[in-house]
Design a binder for these strands. Structure first.
Lengths: 329, 329
DNA sequence: TTGAAAGCGTTACCAG
DNA sequence: CTGGTAACGCTTTCAA
């Protein structure tokens, strides 16, 4: 296993000093053109590559941004990631990504490793377990150390830049529309009741139907949702379903399809699902579009601004969701 | 912006030497319990965190593995990533991920940054552009420097560990089965003709129909595939379609649906698509399952083995695809 | 135009 | 049990 050659070794070979080599490689005006050339040529033949670790340690800058996400199987998160990447790629920064799989321990560990010199800033969407556990010390410790930006999965008590989705209003509006269209009994289904964003959406639902309808809230895994929904539809108890995440949206869709109440809109469905999936369902699913890519882009831009001038006050930006009407409403 | 406290500063505060602090923090037997406690307490109150950069530079080890992937919107790649992550997470290593977006420049840059001290090894699936350009110097330079493992998107000429999918055989077998079932005219559609895996699959198709049928090969974007397929179906020219990737699979599916030739299997389709999508299509799509997670797991395990003992010869492992029969065949 | 030396934050050897 | 010093690979000031 041949190690990378170092400046020191290079300097020995060329019989010049270490500093000369370093300067030559960095095109310093102090070095004559002839020796510059000689040194650069040697660097090429020996395949010299500066050791990033050393450079970063010395300079105190890494020009990389850590992105800590709970999951990438989540279509929204992966769009956010693409958004972030699309703007960072154009800057002088790099990103390194760490996936926590919704685990608290993994998140703490990721944040620790990244923040101790490996990155200049962190973008994070906290994990489900972290939100349940409500232990945010690994994040509050960061404040004042390196810039931190929270995206989507926000912790209110932490004073940092935030980019979030208008979860409460998105559902409030969607449900209000359903009511306006004449829907008399709207059920809510969710597999993300542990997440703050889930709770917020449920609140939006509750607020919208307040004094107008009896709330019907089904929170749990797809199996549970399917069987409960099945009963409700059989007994004609509902005429619309609002689903808060892709898993529950697809569960609702499957049942609606089995019960044959989708084609005539006997039961409407509005849910959350990736574009590809929504459009390939038959009938096509009406969804709430959170504009994940825009969320990512907004986050990255805000962070870049912060990296530029740390003096400004932390900012919170809300990205509005819109409903993408297809067939099921 | 308060910087992290260092050992040096801590030693000044506690009025002991730097080495004492370092040893105490690392639980060295050389330090008395009393001072150990004193130092650890101080470390906690001042929120001391060792600087990873310095530790890694010193030790020459980073215990992190770089994973360079072309895309995560690709469902197969994201499953591979999850597989890798699932085994690395249980080891003493970490992973950092870099997405190249199928770009050669981004890939070169990622590999450069990662390999110069930031990681102990790299797992890579080369980008589309790299395969087209056929410039692999950034990868061959790695050989003998740090362990390199290629997954799925392989470069044959590079001597390193490889984990690949049996692309040729997967399609050869699928097409042979279709012929056996009596299909007389099987079209191939692909949006990945630039990728070696795509070429391999096409070869498998060609070999299977050789001397039995006229090949019909449609390579291009979804729009092109849709319109060509449309004509072929209208003129009863084909009775089966083999699609090599999710984009073309869905294009074929849409056309089949529009032409109403799916429910009676007048035209069969076998394609590549994520499980969720395949199962939510109506009718459900028969697919070739590449077992992405298994590919990831296999890769990670092999790399861990290599990190353990670099002496063994590079290995190539093939993960077999299987067809998941649903409705469209 | 070149080189010596200090320092980034650690660890580890060797003295004391 | 504690501390000085060198070293990891690099950049940068200061002298020469």
């Amino acid at each position: 296993m041949k190690k990378n050659i170092t400046i020191k070794e290079l300097s020995k070979i060329l019989e010049v000093s270490i500093s000369t080599v370093s300067k030559a490689l960095n095109d310093s005006y102090e070095i004559s053109d002839s020796t510059k050339e000689r040194i650069k040529a040697a660097a090429k033949t020996y395949n010299y590559k500066p050791n990033k670790l050393a450079v970063n340690l010395k300079s105190g800058k890494t020009y990389t941004i850590g992105v800590v996400l709970p999951s990438i199987k989540n279509f929204f998160m992966s769009r956010v990631l693409r958004g972030i990447d699309s703007v960072i790629a154009k800057s002088k920064y790099n990103i390194i990504i760490s996936i926590t799989n919704e685990s608290f321990d993994k998140e703490v560990q990721s944040v620790q490793t990244l923040s101790n010199g490996l990155v200049d800033a962190i973008i994070i969407a906290v994990s489900e377990e972290t939100q349940i556990k409500k232990d945010f010390s690994h994040l509050s410790n960061l404040v004042g150390d390196i810039p931190l930006l929270m995206v989507d999965r926000i912790v209110n008590s932490i004073n940092c830049d935030k980019v979030l989705v208008d979860d409460y209003n998105a559902i409030f509006n969607a449900v209000s529309d359903l009511i306006f269209e004449g829907k008399k009994s709207i059920a809510l289904v969710s597999s993300i009741n542990n997440l703050n964003v889930g709770k917020l959406r449920t609140k939006g639902y509750l607020a919208a139907i307040q004094n107008k309808q009896e709330p019907i809230v089904l929170e749990g895994q797809e199996g549970y949702i399917e069987s409960e929904l099945s009963k409700l539809i059989e007994s004609n108890k509902i005429d619309a379903i609002v689903a808060l995440d892709q898993e529950s949206s697809l569960a609702a869709f499957r049942i609606g399809k089995v019960k044959k109440v989708l084609n005539n809109k006997e039961v409407s469905i509005i849910g959350y699902a990736s574009r590809v999936i929504s459009e390939h369902l038959t009938p096509k699913l009406t969804t709430i579009d959170q504009h994940g890519k825009k969320v990512g882009i907004t986050s990255a831009k805000l962070l870049l601004k912060r990296l530029d001038s740390s003096e400004i006050e932390p900012e919170s930006i809300i990205v509005n969701s819109t409903v993408h009407k297809r067939f099921t409403t």
